[in-house]
């Protein structure tokens, strides 16, 4: 299990890094899907099968397909790739990388002070749904309203 966790983690980190340096947008998208699937595996390892399934279906499935549709609609061809290359100069990367490195160092520094073992316990659909439709029912309603608003505004914005 531990091995599976570290393996999936490595895949997630590498594929995510590949996403942000890719110039071909479709390749980047596929790397992103890979990364999300790796995270789904991690979820499973951590004892959250429901979240893992949703990650795979909604994130890696629905949302990424949406991206793909838009990329196809925009019809970003060869010239965008050349454009991407011209934008990818070294100095663009310096400041964000340094800052991200500092941020990561700080996070690691803070997190390493926790010294607690985590023993995955399986928390299945039953517990999650009991919470969702129990104390969090209002949050569910709000989320549905948010989705409705997203639907309406996306329709309105993308309209000709």
């Amino acid at each position: 299990m531990m091995l599976l966790f570290y393996l999936a983690a490595a895949i997630a980190v590498i594929s995510t890094a590949a996403v942000i340096v890719q110039t071909n947008i479709v390749h980047a998208l596929i790397y992103l899907i890979l990364s999300l699937l790796a995270v789904a595996v991690i979820f499973y390892v951590l004892g959250a099968p429901f979240a893992a399934l949703l990650e795979a279906i909604v994130y890696a499935g629905a949302i990424m397909v949406l991206f793909l549709f838009v990329i196809m609609m925009l019809n970003l061809g060869q010239h965008t790739r050349d454009e991407e290359r011209s934008w990818m100069t070294m100095q663009v990367w310096i400041a964000p990388s340094i800052m991200a490195a500092i941020l990561l160092a700080q996070l690691v520094n803070v997190l390493s002070q926790y010294d607690q073992e985590l023993t995955p316990v399986r928390v299945g659909v039953l517990e999650v749904s009991a919470l969702l439709f129990g104390p969090y029912v209002l949050a569910v309603e709000l989320a549905s309203i948010l989705l409705l608003a997203g639907l309406v505004s996306a329709y309105h914005l993308a309209k000709k």
Partner: peptide, 12 residues
Amino acid sequence: ATGLVLILTLGV
């Protein structure tokens, strides 16, 4: 992001 880094730095 810079603000975040600064605040975290202070916290650390």
